[in-house]
């Protein structure tokens, strides 16, 4: 019964997202393709954060760092005339993984409140670094003249083509995180979140597993960064702004921690809601802020917990 509901949920989700471009094409509303593509890119970022936050219990308040690193990898290589996506994207993923490894190595030894502050501080360091390097536009950022080239296989300047690429990559990421969370590795990660003392007593050292998860999450978010840079054709330090980290975190919580569908649902609701509010008033954050506070106080189940078939297990 449960599995049946899950199957329907995911089938509806995939079909709705896949059919969106032709439908809005008929309605002449290309804006929605743009919006949902953005939603799906952030769903990748949120899914990667969910691996460490939801399953691993690591409250990283610096996940936007990898969005920035992935984005700048594309931007900087393009700045020097290297437009091949075959080069740019692996560099984006690899560089993000390396930085995550370094930040994780220092911060994972700390716990709780410390971990939150340290991840936030390191991300802010990267933000200031982005601002202070004038070659790449400093504060203003820089335009990406040519989007990533994939030997003519796909044209990322075509909004619909890039939409479908993002769609495939997003479901791929969600599935990957889903598999990892249920593997031996994922079980160790979740067990350490549940009871660290017990894990140590039966012989697991949580540190190395957490660091590995942190690095994987950074790498996946680096991919989201590369996609986002291609989406906006522009890269600024704002990719790494700490409010961005907070937003990604909220997507995970709003969607439902440690659920496969949660990050997508959270990204969808938060970004669509932000877009609606912003269309209504310039001061939308004055409304969003209190709503976030209320959702923390009263709505901790997350969307995945209330939509039939969206939950796990």
């Amino acid at each position: 019964m449960r599995a049946h509901a899950q199957l329907i949920f995911w089938a509806v989700l995939v079909a709705a997202l896949a059919l969106l471009p032709p439908v809005v094409g008929v309605l002449h509303e290309p804006f929605y393709v743009e919006l949902v593509r953005r939603v799906m890119i952030f769903a990748i970022a949120a899914a990667s954060l969910n691996l460490i936050l939801g399953y691993g219990g690591l409250v990283s308040f610096g996940h936007a760092a990898y969005l920035g690193i992935g984005g700048y990898a594309v931007g900087i290589l393009s700045f020097y005339g290297m437009n091949s996506g075959w080069l740019q994207w692996p560099v984006a993923i690899g560089a993000s993984a390396l930085v995550a490894l370094a930040i994780g190595a220092v911060s994972i030894r700390a716990s709780g409140m410390y971990f939150i502050m340290i991840t936030l501080a390191f991300t802010q360091m990267l933000y200031y670094l982005g601002i202070s390097i004038e070659e790449f536009g400093g504060d203003d950022g820089m335009r990406i003249k040519t989007r990533s080239q994939f030997s003519g296989l796909i044209d990322l300047a075509d909004p619909v083509a890039s939409y479908y690429l993002v769609l495939v990559l997003m479901f791929g990421t969600i599935y990957l995180v889903h598999r990892i969370a249920r593997s031996r590795f994922g079980m160790v990660l979740r067990a350490a979140k549940s009871n660290e003392a017990r894990s140590r007593a039966i012989g697991f050292s949580p540190y190395s597993y957490r660091l590995c998860a942190f690095t994987i999450a950074g790498a996946l978010c680096g991919l989201a960064g590369a996609l986002l840079a291609n989406h906006t054709a522009y890269i600024t330090p704002d990719f790494m702004h700490w409010t961005r980290s907070g937003e990604i975190m909220f997507m995970v919580i709003l969607g439902g921690v440690a659920s496969s569908a949660g990050p997508l649902l959270g990204a969808l609701v938060l970004l669509v809601f932000e877009t609606l509010l912003a269309g209504w008033t310039e001061h939308w954050q004055v409304i969003l802020g209190p709503l976030l506070v209320l959702s923390v106080i009263f709505f901790r189940t997350g969307l995945a917990g209330i939509i039939p078939g969206a939950g796990d297990e």
Partner: peptide, 20 residues
């Protein structure tokens, strides 16, 4: 209990196969 067994069944850097 399966976790306790896993802790003594080699390393757990296995990412794909469902442990359950």
């Amino acid at each position: 209990v399966a976790l306790a067994i896993q802790a003594h069944a080699g390393h757990s850097f296995r990412f794909w196969k469902p442990a359950r």
